[in-house]
Amino acid sequence: MYKYQSSKNSGAKSWVFQRISGLALVVLMIGHYILMHYHPDSGHTYDAVLGRMQFSWYRIIDLVFLTLGMYHGLNGIWGIFRDYNLKPWLKISVLTSLFILGIAFVAWGYNIIFSIPYLRNITLN
């Protein structure tokens, strides 16, 4: 999929980030899917989540996953809008809406992870 564009803001950076975040997401998403399904309980019970959340590195993986996934997905949607040569005011409205949506859901997701208690005092593990 080649894209040739010639304005100052060519979108080349977001094109590169789309590919890099995509590659990171291959590992994160497929890993997540296996982890959540190797046993029927592992993806669907509170205890399984609580158990994982005792390891801070696991929380960090989730936060990175959420951030990259949101960025990649919303940037992808923005890419679709870019196909349509929108009027400037529409462009700004769409971009702002996507941005707010992303920030809101990332904040919500972070809040979820941080709200899960540590059962014992464990530092980085």
């Binding site: 509170y46 996934g69 949101m70 997905g73 992808g76 949607i77 859901f105 709200s115």
Partner: peptide, 14 residues
């Protein structure tokens, strides 16, 4: 991305 929105919503009961 649609799933991800729903996913965060349903995980919010955590």
């Amino acid at each position: 991305i649609g799933y991800l929105f729903l996913h965060v919503y349903s995980l919010s009961t955590l």
